[in-house]
């Protein structure tokens, strides 16, 4: 997707990202939030999460300005309650089915569990994307998610069926379809995002990665992870008025090795208390190694009309551990 027109205002310049957070600061912020979470038996969790996100966004700089997270604990608390209720209901019904049903139809319980999780995941992704984008801004301009739930369900239905039929071989194409749907619906002012990766390429990365990881007794794992990272980031394109810009991640296997081994050591030797430090290390590594080959007019982004979107599915995605944004 090389640029063919001459840009009117700016030539293609790499705009770098920078992460300015410090481990000691995040630790100081998360610690009292942990205390409150424990004291309130977990109820405070959404507020704690909002504070962490606010910090991480505020310390992420692009083209000299910081990102901002506008979500609040109160909003996320509503979502949290729904999430806990929904997941609780699913677990409750599953257990009830296992207890009530006679031996020969116990598989109904398993079936119910998989079906309901399958129904919840697209909703969780959709809800989280809508919420997170609407609450993220840069220079006062908010992001926006324009996708709809029906398309997400269609992608999941097709993806799950084909993955089952092909005994898992279709999974990379399924993942790319989800990514294309998510990225293709992110708007930032008049900037449109898209994802240009292909399932075949992802399949190749997974195939090579798993083979070599086995052959090298795990050492290749870090190079495998960095290739995955590059696949997911370098295929993101930004389009504004017909002009395209491209994200680029400069991560390496060696860098991933240092990052992940360091993080595991930090977390293990501090009994988990050093998690904020590991978070900062990851953010620094990922953000500082990202560049945008930029053809964008960053001065004239226009705000879309504000909308009111609840945090309904934010925490469902959290409980199901769908790390998307």
């Amino acid at each position: 997707m090389e640029e063919i027109y001459q840009a009117s205002s700016a030539a293609e310049v790499p705009q770098t990202f920078a992460f300015k957070g410090k481990g000691s600061e995040l630790f100081g912020i998360q610690l009292p939030n942990w205390v409150l979470t424990v004291v309130t038996l977990g109820i405070y969790y959404p507020w704690a999460k909002a504070e962490k996100l606010k910090y991480l966004y505020q310390k992420t700089e692009f083209a000299g300005s910081r990102f901002k997270f506008h979500g609040t604990g109160k909003e996320m608390f509503r979502g949290f309650i729904k999430a806990v209720f929904l997941i609780g209901l699913i677990i409750g019904v599953t257990i009830a089915l296992f207890v009530k049903l006679p031996e020969e139809s116990k598989f109904m319980g398993t079936l119910f569990l998989y079906l309901s999780i399958g129904l919840v995941i697209p909703m969780a992704i959709f809800g989280q994307m809508r919420y997170r984008t609407s609450r993220s801004s840069w220079r006062g301009i908010h992001f926006k998610y324009t996708g709809d739930l029906k398309t997400m369900y269609t992608i999941f239905l097709k993806g799950i069926l084909l993955t089952l039929v092909t005994l898992g071989l279709y999974l990379p194409w399924f993942m790319v379809d989800i990514r294309k749907e998510i990225m293709g619906n992110i708007r930032f002012g008049n900037i449109r995002f898209s994802f240009d990766g292909e399932g075949g390429e992802l399949f190749g990365i997974h195939f090579k990665g798993r083979m070599l990881t086995m052959l090298t007794l795990g050492i290749y794992f870090f190079w495998y992870q960095s290739e995955l990272h590059q696949f997911y980031v370098n295929n993101i394109l930004l389009e504004q008025d017909g002009k395209y810009s491209r994200l680029e991640a400069n991560v390496t296997g060696k860098g991933y090795l240092k990052l992940l081994v360091g993080n595991v050591l930090i977390i293990v030797f501090t009994l988990g208390l050093g998690t904020p430090l590991a978070t900062i290390r990851s953010m620094k590594y990922v953000i500082n190694n990202s560049e945008l080959f930029c053809n964008l007019d960053l001065e004239n982004l226009e705000q879309a009309e504000p909308d009111t979107i609840g945090a309904a599915m934010e925490d469902v995605s959290d409980i199901l551990n769908l790390d998307l944004v």
Partner: peptide, 9 residues
């Protein structure tokens, strides 16, 4: 100063 309508500072 950003007016919340455009990203022009």
């Amino acid at each position: 100063y950003f007016n919340g309508k455009t990203s022009a500072g």
